[in-house]
Design a binder for these strands. Structure first.
Lengths: 231, 231
DNA sequence: TTGACCGGTGTACGCCGTACACCCGCAGAG
DNA sequence: CTCTGCGGGTGTACGGCGTACACCGGTCAA
């Protein structure tokens, strides 16, 4: 009776930053970042909202810490002679982490200040370019050029995933063909041409790797030319 | 007295979707998207908040319409024989529009459904690739690969603009060098090497064009090789 | 034994988006 | 000229948000 709580029925585990983050990440995974509020997280933990503030300064810090959890899931850099496959593999691992937590990219896009964890990730990324023989200048440009791809996602203008159901009726088709002939042409090619590399809709993984490789090879050429601008 | 309002002192102009959007864009330009609330916009228009809802379904629609205003500022595509300079110029024009309204990229990143105006922009972009001789497949990949650059911005992982004041004291420097050696190396090169193309801090315009050209040239090679994947 | 501290609680404030009922002035029908 | 419908601005209210602040019970060092 000394150690256990007075009432056995309400033996709730103690709160901790860790437990809060686990609950918050789980909630975001389950219901999306839109449903992520301090109050909901507290509720999931059977705790009053203000309790969270004993462990986190505010919601902003919680979001940052949640990102750290995701970044922590990215594989460490492989050591190997080939910088290109090392960087490529790492970025694809980052992408897997982001795909496990689809809310994360949205959060990254909106946030401002990076946490030490994210800084560390960037640092090691820079290190990989440098180890691959990139000059400082070119490394700098490379980091900018890769943009969000460094963290495993690319900014899509809109989510074409499951763009309505496949049964897009002829009426809509016709309207679209009139208003947006080029989109229409592209869209019909993509969704009907079975021989195309994209079957139904877009193969996001393929598109991501396509752009990634385009970038990496462009950078490689810059490096080999030892010149700064691609033109 | 028949036409003019009863009280000359309170002759307020009638509300309209147009007037609301002008006020909203101005507010966002002035105080940032964080301060953009229906209530603040209404206040700027000397009107009760609910009045806005006679002209807009909800805030989401207002944000979309605000984006349309920005996209409307992008130059029309130039007609010319060279697809690369045409696309390049148009994207740089998009970038200028986005720079005039810094909140817009944040809004784009978070939004889901595109408006007809944005669809029209994308359509004409696709048309430019097609007119330049790109196959449908390659056009499709190109659109994905360009990602947010099509709209004139690229996702930066964090805003390094005015990273603290230039007087970064030696203590912080040392701490940074220990924790993030690669970032440190890059950072000091960028901020101290006057010969570098980047003087103090980053030249965002240069970085944007660097990545843009890398992408465009990679796409050009794909097109000329008439192959689908860059490798 | 005491008292400080740490972590969970309760209440409250000010902001948000927006549903809903209202009301007024004008247009067109009778 | 009156009646009536209606479009657009109003007022009130609700539920949700982040979080400031006072409080309080248990643990543990002195």
């Amino acid at each position: 009776m000394k150690i256990a709580p007075a009432s056995a029925t309400k033996a709730r585990a103690r709160l901790s930053r860790e437990r809060i983050l686990v609950a918050a990440v789980a909630l975001a995974d389950r219901e999306g970042v839109g449903s992520l509020s301090m109050r909901r997280v507290a509720q999931d933990l059977d705790v009053v909202p203000m309790a969270l503030y004993k462990h986190l300064a505010n919601k902003e810090e919680m979001l940052g810490a949640m990102l750290d959890v995701v970044v922590g899931e990215i594989d460490l850099p492989a050591s190997g002679p080939d910088w290109k496959v090392a960087i490529r593999d790492r970025i694809l691992s980052a992408r897997q982490a982001l795909l496990r937590h689809p809310w994360a990219s949205r959060v990254i896009e909106v946030r401002t200040e990076p946490t030490p964890i994210v800084m560390g990730y960037m640092d090691s990324m820079i290190g990989m370019f440098r180890a691959g023989g990139f000059s400082i200048d070119l490394t700098h440009h490379a980091m900018h050029a890769m943009g969000s791809r460094l963290l495993g996602f690319s900014q899509e203008l809109f989510n074409d995933r499951s763009d309505a159901d496949p049964s897009m009726d002829a009426e809509m088709y016709a309207a679209m063909a009139g208003a947006y002939p080029s989109i229409y042409e592209l869209f019909s090619a993509v969704s009907h041409d079975d021989a195309s590399v994209v079957g139904q809709g877009c193969d996001d993984q393929f598109e991501f790797e396509f752009a990634l490789d385009l970038m990496l090879e462009g950078l490689e050429r810059c490096k080999d030319r030892a010149t700064r601008v691609p033109g």
